[in-house]
Design a binder for these strands. Structure first.
Length: 592
RNA sequence: GACCCCGUAGCUCAGUUGGAUAGAGCAUCAGCCUUCUAAGCUGAGGGUCGCAGGUUCGAAUCCUGCCGGGGUCGCCA
């Protein structure tokens, strides 16, 4: 019977009540989709504000303020509404009875790690493709932002009830893996005792290929020496790719990133079944692939431009600027051609939602890929491409130099080893994906407010510390979070009346909204910012207990008040831990 | 020349998908530790949201045009 218990959270509940209050005043088929219930920026405007009257005024044929008064009058009799105020152009500001917030906090304690889960995903399948670094060497620091982003986004979508597959596309078919094979072959000869001298220009110079050479030597002895490339290339390539992928997976594991599916580009054309050709033929049959000529690029002098007829995909039919070539001049497929076949495979595997996480230099590629997804799926599937901007690696404000030419780059492993997984992950998510990120190795291990990783983790540890201290007074307070939460559900939360406490209860209650908004927008950074704000408010309330002892969480001769406040702390700790878990960052019990 | 992204406080950045008087951190200045972790907190100053139009009850947010920065532009992935 209690509507609040049925709905997912207070915001959804209040929205229902606003609709209920407005419906009798409107035509039966009124569209409520633009009606929002939000926490107002200014707390003096109450707990909730709705734009209902302003959005619906036109349909109702009334002035916004008049309609607001009418809706407000109906809301005033609602049993969870304390106060209704009409403000500005027609906002309806609601103050809710305080038991509403106590109820919501109990819901947090009941839900534990599940609080904030959403059902908006409806178990729909979504494919999140990320990292997809070429298997030609270890992961370097530039890869880790996309890795962390994709991983956190996948966590978030899972939490919002999508059926998520985390995928890695292995570019094991292009010319660069042949270069890898030749580089490994050279290391193979070296492993057999040959002096290979300087690594020639055009081959990968890094030492990380030595183990591949040694493995080849151990496996094949001298059998491959002096043979033509055609006899060893495949062998060296397969070995090198397998070993590089193993290294990459180990690097990703160090970041706590794991993926479900590793899709090989080579598999598209292997086994006598050329799926790239098949995809192109299919599109050609539908008139979306044709032989034609492209205009030369404008602006540039285009000296080596050679006008020729080629195989083109009609991406302009799907919103792209020009049609895109599918074959190189030597008759092989372009990367785009295999990418179309690859995305078709995602569609064939049942994914109607695809998310690709790409580096910033691929921005110009988005439209054609979205066009291709529309084409191969007959408009049924959608592709969102998240562009991950560069990371500027700094140390105490100074850029960290790296020379790719000398084969020296900062590896992902080095960074994780130096500052820790949590710092890397949190900082990579503490910026919108399309903004350049400064990553300062010195700053992220600082233990200060300047370092958001520390600041948020510290809030969690502080909360846990309260429980440790409270146990002196309440010896039966359980250590395990779930049992403790169960016990604290019985606390008299209604007696919490300080504005800081109430404000924290509202902040906690906003978590499900943040989850949904972040999931819909594919923006995990919103969780990081939310956690920072929650931590900040908790630190503030904590310190107020210094000046005002009656506001401390633990009140020596008042177990009832103490329990009520511990319930609040439990709510804070629960949401902090679950938000951090979505980001893949640990929630420590203490910071020492 | 075309397309994409960015432009918000001195610096680094958020801004709840169009809401009310635009917010944090750093830096600057002024304060708070016999007490639950001062690894923290409170307050002050600091803004023509790049510029100009438009859409509407209402624009940092949407549209158009400029300005500035970055990226991309048949054969690399």
């Amino acid at each position: 019977m209690n509507a609040a218990a049925k709905s997912k959270n207070v915001f959804a509940d209040v929205l229902e009540r606003v609709r209920g209050a407005a419906t009798p005043l409107l035509a039966p088929d009124t569209d409520f989709s633009r009606v929002l219930v939000e926490p107002p920026r200014d707390p003096t405007h109450g707990d909730m504000a709705t734009n209902a009257a302003m959005v619906l005024a036109k349909d109702a044929g009334k002035k916004p303020r008049d309609l607001a008064e009418a809706i407000g009058a109906n809301l005033r009799s609602d049993d969870i509404v304390e106060k209704v105020e009409i403000a500005g152009p027609g906002f309806i500001n609601l103050t809710l009875k305080s038991h509403v917030w106590a109820e919501e906090l109990r819901r947090v304690l009941r839900g534990g790690a599940d609080y904030g889960r959403s059902d908006i995903g409806k178990r729909e399948k979504v494919n999140v493709e990320y990292v997809s670094a070429n298997p030609t060497g270890p992961m370097h620091v530039g890869h880790c932002r996309g890795a962390v982003f994709g991983d956190a986004l996948a966590n978030l979508l899972t939490f919002a009830d999508f059926d998520v597959t985390r995928e890695y596309y292995i570019n094991d078919a292009g010319a660069q893996v042949d270069v890898l094979a030749r580089s490994a072959y050279l290391r193979y000869r070296e492993a057999l005792g040959e002096n290979i001298g300087q690594i020639p220009e055009g081959l990968y110079p890094g030492d990380y290929l030595k183990p591949v050479g040694e493995a080849l030597a151990a496996e094949h002895g001298g059998a491959l020496v002096g043979k033509p490339e055609s006899e060893w290339l495949q062998i060296a390539r397969a070995k090198a790719i397998a070993m590089m992928m193993a290294a990459i997976r180990a690097d990703l594991a160090a970041l706590n990133v794991s993926q479900d599916a590793f899709f090989s580009e080579r598999s598209l054309i292997a086994g006598g079944k050329d799926q790239v050709a098949a995809t192109i033929d299919e599109l050609r049959a539908r008139g979306e692939v044709y032989q034609g000529r492209l205009p030369p690029p404008k602006g540039g002098a285009a000296e080596d431009w050679e006008d020729r007829e080629q195989t083109l995909f009609r991406s302009t039919d799907f919103g792209d600027d020009v049609d895109r070539p599918l074959m190189k001049s030597d008759g092989s497929y372009t990367y785009f051609a295999s990418d179309i076949a690859y995305h078709k495979s995602k569609f064939d595997r049942g994914f109607l939602h695809m998310i690709d996480v790409w580096g910033a230099d691929h921005g110009g590629y988005i439209k054609r890929m979205q066009a291709a997804v529309k084409a191969v799926s007959g408009g049924k599937a959608d592709l969102d491409v998240k562009i991950i901007q560069l990371v500027k690696l700094l140390r105490a404000g100074e850029p960290v130099k790296m020379s790719k030419r000398a084969g020296e780059f900062v590896t992902l492993r080095e960074v994780v080893d130096e500052v820790g997984r949590d710092a890397v992950r949190f900082m990579m998510l503490y910026r919108k994906n399309d903004a350049v990120l400064d990553f300062d190795l010195a700053k992220v291990i600082e233990q200060s407010r300047d370092n958001p990783v520390f600041y948020v983790q510290y809030a969690h540890a502080r909360g846990e510390s309260v429980f440790r201290n409270a146990r002196e007074m309440l010896p039966d307070l359980p250590r395990a979070a779930a049992e403790r939460a169960a016990m604290l559900q019985g606390a008299r939360i209604e007696r919490l009346s300080d504005s800081g406490e109430l404000s924290l209860m509202r902040r906690i209650a906003a978590f499900p909204r943040v989850i949904e908004a972040a999931a819909v927008a594919h923006e995990p950074h919103r969780i990081a910012f939310y956690l920072y704000e929650l931590a900040s408010e908790f630190h503030a309330l904590w310190t107020r207990g210094k000046d005002l002892p009656h506001l401390r969480f633990i009140i020596q001769n008042d177990p009832e008040t103490t329990k009520a406040r511990l319930a609040l702390v439990q709510g804070i700790v629960t949401v902090l831990a679950s938000g951090l878990a979505l980001l893949g960052v640990s929630a420590p019990e203490e910071m020492r």
